[in-house]
């Protein structure tokens, strides 16, 4: 029996625009993954604590408020602090092109911009998670 891929979709920051996060959650579900969705306005600390308790393979962060440069790297560094840096972190939302390189350098494995297909995200997760 192969282990199911488990993904946490989380929205750090203060914006309440969760349509994208929900669309991605459903697409991952339809691809056979188990998705934990924790709702809007989560702190990086809450996201990391949840990821550790749920022992997820991947975290998808969605942010449309413009605070991604602060919040996404914070999630990665907290994971590292807790010894859980094997979790694959990706992000999406309204993110200017010039920010992407910095986010990748900070350990966000991929950024999906508006217009990206859900298939791209699914494919990316399948290829990159470290399943036991």
């Amino acid at each position: 029996m192969s282990k199911k891929i488990k993904v946490l979709i989380a929205k750090p920051g203060l914006d309440g625009h969760d349509r994208g996060a929900k669309v991605v959650s459903r697409a991952l579900r339809d691809a056979g993954m188990e998705v934990i969705y924790t709702g809007i306005r989560q702190t990086p600390e809450q996201i990391v604590a949840t990821a550790i308790q749920e022992d997820v393979d991947s975290i998808g962060l969605s942010c449309l408020s413009g605070a991604h440069n602060k919040l996404f790297p914070k999630v990665v560094s907290l994971l590292k602090e807790k010894g859980a840096d094997d979790v694959l972190v990706f992000g999406g939302g309204i993110i200017p092109d010039e920010d992407i390189a910095g986010l990748k350098q900070a350990g966000i494995a991929a950024i999906f911009l508006p217009g990206a297909s859900t298939e791209e995200t699914i494919e990316f997760i399948r290829k990159n998670v470290k399943t036991a």
Partner: peptide, 17 residues
């Protein structure tokens, strides 16, 4: 699909920390 959306935690996130 065999997949799932697990959303019960949304209501319990005040206890996450």
């Amino acid at each position: 699909s065999g997949g799932a959306i697990l959303g019960d935690r949304i209501r319990m996130q005040q206890h996450a920390l």
